[in-house]
Amino acid sequence: GGTTSGLGELPSGWEQRFTPEGRAYFVDHNTRTTTWVDPRRQQ
């Protein structure tokens, strides 16, 4: 941990993952979708 950059926890059902290249993306298990956009930035 320690790399949350002050955004806090992800919404319920979300998970942060990384591509083999090390790029972060976000998985929404509620809708079984993925996005490059941090859901915390859409609030």
Rank of each mutant, 00 (worst) to 15 (best):
F18W: 10
Q43E: 15
E9P: 09
P20H: 14
Y25E: 02
T19K: 01
Q43T: 13
D38T: 03
G6N: 14
L10V: 04
G13E: 03
T3V: 12
T19N: 07
W36A: 05
R32D: 04
Q16L: 09
G2F: 09
G13P: 01
V27S: 03
D38I: 02
P11M: 02
G2C: 12
R40G: 06
F26D: 03
H29R: 06
T34L: 03
E21G: 11
F18E: 14
E15V: 06
E21W: 05
P20W: 05
G8T: 09
Y25A: 00
E9L: 04
N30P: 02
G13C: 04
P11Y: 02
H29S: 06
R17C: 14
P20F: 04
Q16V: 10
R17M: 13
W14G: 03
E21N: 11
G2W: 08
N30A: 09
E15G: 04
P20D: 14
T31K: 08
A24V: 11
Y25M: 05
H29D: 05
Q43Y: 15
G13L: 03
T34S: 09
P11R: 00
S12G: 09
Q42L: 13
T3D: 14
G8R: 08
L10Q: 04
V27R: 03
L7I: 12
T4K: 14
P39F: 00
L7N: 13
D38C: 07
R40A: 04
E21R: 06
E15H: 05
F18H: 14
D28H: 03
P39E: 01
T3H: 10
Y25L: 03
T31P: 00
N30F: 05
F26M: 02
N30C: 07
L7V: 12
G2Q: 08
Y25G: 01
P20Q: 11
G8P: 06
W36T: 05
R23F: 11
R23W: 12
Q42F: 11
F26L: 02
G22Q: 07
R41L: 14
W14H: 03
S5D: 15
R41I: 09
R23C: 14
Y25W: 08
N30T: 09
G1M: 14
L10S: 02
R40Q: 05
V37Q: 07
T31Q: 08
G6W: 08
N30R: 08
R40F: 01
R23P: 08
W14C: 04
T33Y: 05
G6E: 14
G1V: 12
E15C: 04
P11T: 00
T35W: 02
R40P: 04
P39R: 00
R41Q: 14
R23A: 15
L7W: 08
T33R: 05
L7G: 09
R17F: 08
T33M: 12
E21H: 15
G6V: 12
T33V: 09
A24I: 14
E9H: 03
W14Q: 02
G1W: 05
W14T: 04
S5E: 15
Q16P: 06
H29W: 07
T31E: 08
S12M: 10
T4M: 14
T35V: 01
V37D: 09
R40I: 04
E9G: 10
D28S: 03
R41G: 13
E15R: 02
R41S: 14
F18D: 13
Q43G: 15
Q42A: 14
D38L: 02
R17S: 11
V37S: 10
P11S: 03
R32F: 10
T34K: 04
N30D: 08
N30E: 08
L10H: 04
T35I: 00
G6P: 09
G13Y: 01
V27D: 02
D38Y: 03
G6C: 14
P11C: 01
R23N: 15
F18L: 10
T31Y: 01
R17I: 12
T35S: 11
A24Y: 09
G1K: 15
V37H: 13
T33D: 04
R40K: 04
D38Q: 05
R23E: 15
V37A: 08
E9V: 10
Q42M: 11
E9Q: 05
T34N: 04
G13Q: 06
G8D: 13
R41A: 15
T35D: 02
T35L: 00
G22N: 15
S5H: 12
Y25T: 02
G13M: 03
G13V: 00
T33L: 08
S5T: 12
Y25S: 01
